[in-house]
Simulated assay, not measured.
Amino acid sequence: MIDVEKEYPQIDVIAVGAHPDDVEIACGGTLAKLVDQGHTVAIIDLTDGEPTPHSPGPDVRLSEAMEAAKVLGVNKRITLDLPNRRLFDSFEARVMLAKEFRKYRPNVVIGFGNRTPMASPDHWQAMQITDAAVFYSRLTKWDETFDHLPVHTIGRQIYYKIAFEPIQNVDAPGTFVHDITGCLERKLDSIRCYQTQFPPKKDYIFERVKGAAALIGSMAGYSAGEQFFTTRAVGTPDMMDLLYPETRDYTERNALKRSSVE
């Protein structure tokens, strides 16, 4: 059995995209904020995104992806050897991604949450591959299939949507908005790294991303936000802590208030 703790650093959160730039557009602000909060973060691109109309080749796209990761501050970026434009949910693709989960042992996996009509069908395939890989990561008695990597149970899985896709709910038990007000510009800067995908004639994309962030954020009272969908209903052991997230010392303050009255 491989000693993954020596070979691979543990990653708190892994975000999975079909192509380089998917994750930045969908949840780049969240990843930047998680890094600022001290969490380790990685991005896994299932394909290299090539060919595309305005890119000279995979090396350039990879360089853009690594620069975008640097802007967000993520700790690691991995590109799997799966085919762009021909990405399908297959056993081999599921195993390939599950191996990465077993290596880096994330607590949270973030991935696509729905189809993207009029956009790449790879996105929907990526969702199915990610769902299966989360499950495969914890399956026992299958050692040879996973190169004898130890099993790993991922605690939480959440879904994202591409930021400028139509705003509609994913069929999921719960949803929440993450405040990215302080990280919106870094999100936009990470997307700008993809000059082959977003040349000057596509500058309108950045206004769409900003508009989506403002709209989503406003649903929860933030200046900018990213929306996520959960595989379980959102629950809390402390209602007041949930209702007043901006004052995490709520309980402590009220305990002091009660003691002063007594």
Rank of each mutant, 00 (worst) to 15 (best):
residue 183 C to Q: 14
residue 146 F to H: 13
residue 65 A to V: 03
residue 115 R to A: 13
residue 13 V to C: 05
residue 233 A to N: 03
residue 7 E to P: 00
residue 96 M to C: 06
residue 139 L to V: 15
residue 20 P to Q: 08
residue 89 D to R: 00
residue 206 F to H: 07
residue 125 Q to V: 00
residue 166 P to S: 06
residue 49 G to P: 02
residue 122 D to E: 06
residue 98 A to C: 04
residue 212 A to S: 15
residue 61 R to D: 12
residue 188 L to I: 15
residue 118 M to I: 13
residue 181 T to A: 11
residue 99 K to P: 08
residue 217 G to N: 11
residue 88 F to V: 11
residue 172 A to V: 06
residue 195 Q to A: 15
residue 26 A to M: 04
residue 20 P to S: 10
residue 133 A to R: 01
residue 42 A to Q: 10
residue 18 A to C: 03
residue 154 I to K: 03
residue 133 A to V: 03
residue 183 C to F: 12
residue 177 V to Y: 10
residue 51 P to E: 09
residue 115 R to V: 08
residue 47 T to A: 05
residue 11 I to T: 10
residue 236 T to R: 11
residue 131 D to V: 04
residue 252 E to G: 00
residue 245 P to Q: 12
residue 70 K to D: 12
residue 182 G to T: 12
residue 220 A to H: 10
residue 226 E to T: 13
residue 248 R to A: 14
residue 75 N to T: 09
residue 68 A to H: 01
residue 110 I to E: 03
residue 180 I to Y: 09
residue 139 L to Y: 05
residue 16 V to T: 02
residue 136 Y to F: 15
residue 163 A to N: 07
residue 207 E to H: 11
residue 129 I to R: 01
residue 197 Q to D: 05
residue 181 T to Q: 11
residue 251 T to A: 15
residue 170 V to C: 11
residue 186 R to F: 05
residue 140 T to V: 12
residue 151 V to K: 07
residue 236 T to H: 07
residue 127 M to R: 04
residue 118 M to D: 15
residue 134 V to P: 01
residue 76 K to T: 01
residue 200 P to I: 13
